[in-house]
Design a protein around this nucleic acid. Structure first.
Length: 573
DNA sequence: GCCGTTTTCGGCCCGACTGTTTTCAGTCG
């Protein structure tokens, strides 16, 4: 089994952390971290690139030395420099870095003076009051360590963006009640629509002397105030999420929004470009010498560099700056482009609402069509449909379509792909449907080869339209099953089958990287909510955001088509 | 360790906040 990109990136990150503690040249440390980040974001595997004889030093951030190290890792599974570092410095020190307020310098000091190697050592030293006497430490830091010890045990928690949205909206409503708030925006990975966020960065502009900071730290959900300043404060909420509030002047709002939206990789590219043009960018504005040339609006920051506006979803350092320079940014699909939803359940299986409620909700969203796709019989826990019940539902849909204006319900099914690659209902009934959404719900643990062949065999069925939630992952709950997606995408393209971007916030499956892969391979996709309630149809925006993060345009998303054209695609002709 | 329209050496994004200091180092984002 070839070594994956993320495994290689992990080795470089670990090496970077250890060298950081050892006090190695910080730019060398950064070079390793930078390389790890680049490697994680690569669209293809390093193992294949090396096998194909490609020159790794052509990748940004990968020079001669790191390229050789990657080849060593791929050949031997080991990174000698890391093993040497591990022999010098106990790996348990890495856990200490996870504690807020402990960085490489303090960890090194704790290790070299008090022989603190583990979290247990750290707790003991802190309780014995030994830490406060170290140079550069003091009682406050000792106390902070004790308070944050549990963080290192928990590990980094990331929240679904959907959860964060509820938290952010409540907090914004709380802040809005204070006088003097003008603009307010959540920046960070939240604004880039990453599927999960680690914390919230909120920016506000205020008129005059607003007590917004007081209001912020007094929020009822605050468990701990981490810092409190005039322009920045940080709190930890009772649910563990950290929230930063920054007060910026209105003439700097755009620059601050740009800066705090990130990503880090994107900002480094933008700033490097600015330096080349004799400009300096910080969160206060764009400066030529002492003169501010932009800052109030985010788009002006890009305009100063001669760039068109780059939407937050693209700001991941995946070539968007170069594309902007060449005027080749994609025209991303938008929510308004979506003409219908092709995956929805009713109370006939595990949904909550009936046909008509779902239809009316879809019509209220301005849709032209909605596919009803309840489960097939194999999904017994959802009371999946057999042929008889499915035919009854089809008749009910015909009746409702006759009666309803302004929306067409499509007769569909979410049919299970059985372990042998057959579909869970006979072709005799599948052929009478408008579309078939096909999915894997059982036997996730097959080998990659078997899982892939199972799905490819299912695609051989002429009635296979859409592969639903293609990797089966549930964010923070269930890992994706092993499957050869490039092969499945190539097969889908060849046969006229489609892949789904499932918009459920805990699925978002395909993910953004897969969307990029689909874009490169030219396979067509659909964005579907998999709604189990009428309000669930509103989650479409999450699927659209994921598609946008994957650089997808309208013409690659089939449910942007009018119904007549959609039917042609579904006919697989 | 990477990189090059200041090109093979000497830079490397940059500012806020905290705590421990008395001018700054460490951490964080």
């Amino acid at each position: 089994m070839a070594i994956s990109n993320s495994e290689i990136a992990d080795l470089f990150d670990e090496l970077a952390d250890l060298l950081d503690i050892e006090g190695e040249n910080p730019y060398k440390v950064r070079a390793y971290r930078n390389a790890a980040r680049i490697i994680r974001g690569l669209p293809c595997s390093l193992a294949e690139m090396v096998a194909d004889g490609e020159d790794l030093t052509r990748l940004p951030g990968i020079g001669e030395r790191i390229a050789r190290k990657i080849e060593t890792i791929l050949r031997t599974g080991r990174l000698p420099q890391l093993e040497q570092a591990l022999a010098r410095t106990p790996p348990t020190l890495l856990q200490l870095l996870r504690i807020d307020g402990l960085g490489p310098k303090r960890v090194k000091a704790l290790f070299s003076t008090l022989d603190v190697k583990t979290l247990e050592d750290l707790e003991r030293a802190a309780r014995q009051g030994k830490i406060r006497h170290l140079p550069g430490f003091g009682p406050k830091i000792e106390e902070l360590i004790l308070r944050h010890l549990d963080q290192a045990l928990e590990g980094e928690r990331r929240y679904l963006r959907f959860e964060a949205e509820g938290i952010a909206n409540a907090l914004i409503a709380h802040l809005r009640q204070v006088l003097g708030i003008d603009r307010i925006e959540v920046a960070g990975s939240y604004r880039r629509w990453k599927e999960t966020v680690g914390d919230l960065d909120i920016l506000v502009t205020v008129c005059g002397d607003s007590p917004v900071m007081d209001r912020f730290v007094a929020y009822e959900g605050v468990a701990e105030v981490l810092s409190r300043g005039t322009t920045r404060s940080s709190v930890r909420l009772r649910n563990g999420m950290q929230v930063d509030l920054r007060v910026v002047a209105s003439e700097s709002f755009g620059a601050a929004l740009q800066y705090f939206t990130g990503s880090k990789a994107h900002n480094i590219e933008i700033r490097t470009l600015a330096v080349k043009q004799g400009l300096k960018i910080n969160e206060y504005g764009v400066f030529r010498g002492e003169t501010r040339v932009a800052g109030e609006e985010e788009s002006d920051v890009y305009a100063c560099l001669g760039l068109p506006y780059i939407v937050p979803e693209l700001r991941e350092g995946r070539g968007e700056v170069e594309a902007a320079q060449q005027r080749q940014l994609p025209k991303l699909v938008t929510l308004a482009d979506i003409r219908g939803d092709l995956h929805a359940h009713t109370r006939e299986t595990d949904g909550r609402d009936d046909l008509e409620t779902m239809a009316l909700a879809a019509r209220a969203l301005g849709y032209e069509y909605l596919a009803i796709t309840d489960h097939s019989r194999r999904v017994t826990v959802a009371r999946g449909l057999d042929e008889k019940r499915l035919r009854a539902q089809m008749a009910a849909i015909d009746t409702l379509n006759d009666r309803l204006e302004g929306i067409t319900l499509l007769k569909g099914i979410e049919v299970d792909i059985l372990e042998n690659g057959r579909l869970d209902l006979p072709d005799s009934v599948l052929k009478d449907l408008d579309l078939r959404v096909c999915s894997v719900h059982y036997r996730f643990n097959l080998s990659k080869r078997k899982q892939t062949e199972r799905i490819l065999r299912a695609m051989d069925n002429p009635y296979f339209n859409i592969l639903a939630h293609p990797t089966g992952r549930l964010i923070n709950k269930r890992r994706p099953y092993a499957v050869d997606l490039p092969r499945i995408m190539a097969a889908a393209k060849e046969r006229g089958c489609l892949l789904e971007i499932n918009a459920q916030p805990e699925r978002l499956d395909l993910n953004d990287e897969h969307c990029l892969m689909a874009r490169d391979l030219g396979v067509k996709l659909v964005i579907s909510t998999d709604a189990h309630t009428a309000t669930g149809l509103q989650l479409m925006r999450y699927g659209v955001a994921q598609a946008r993060r994957g650089w997808l345009e309208k013409d690659q998303i089939v449910n942007t088509l009018p119904l007549a054209q959609l039917r042609q695609v579904l006919a697989r002709t």
